[in-house]
Design a protein around this nucleic acid. Structure first.
Length: 107
DNA sequence: AAGTTGACGACGA
DNA sequence: CTCGTCGCCAACT
């Protein structure tokens, strides 16, 4: 366990922490920010690594549909949904309104 | 080194 | 809207 996270993943974590409070970003947005809009899957993989999931607001990262990944990153706890609502993001059935909460400054 | 997997996206039916 | 398939990238086995 010498080799920690790869540079690619590290970049993903930085961008994830970059997401402002009360907003959400899509995997694609992060990939675009890295300059690889098609590496969206690699981004998801990197987040799955999530070595600092306490620090990384992965609950603010959603897919293109606005669906949260609470099914994975939080041991099945849907408390993340409330956390997002607490930040001002309305979550319906684990889905957020991208038209209102999807960050654009990230691009 | 090669093949498989995966927190995805887009398109077709 | 749901299901299936292809594509694309990095990590894992």
């Amino acid at each position: 366990m010498k080799q920690n996270i790869t540079p690619f993943a590290r970049q993903v974590y930085l961008i994830t922490q970059m997401i402002p409070h009360g907003k959400v970003a899509t995997y694609t947005d992060i990939a675009i920010k890295m300059g690889k809009p098609k590496a969206v899957r690699a981004v998801g993989n990197a987040l799955h690594n999530n070595p600092e999931m306490i620090v990384i607001p992965c609950h603010r990262v959603v897919n293109i549909k606005g669906g949260l990944a609470i099914n994975f990153g939080f041991h099945g706890q849907d408390g993340q949904k409330e956390l997002l609502e607490k930040e001002g993001v309305e979550v319906v059935s684990g889905t957020v309104n991208l038209d209102k909460y999807r960050i654009r400054e990230l691009k």
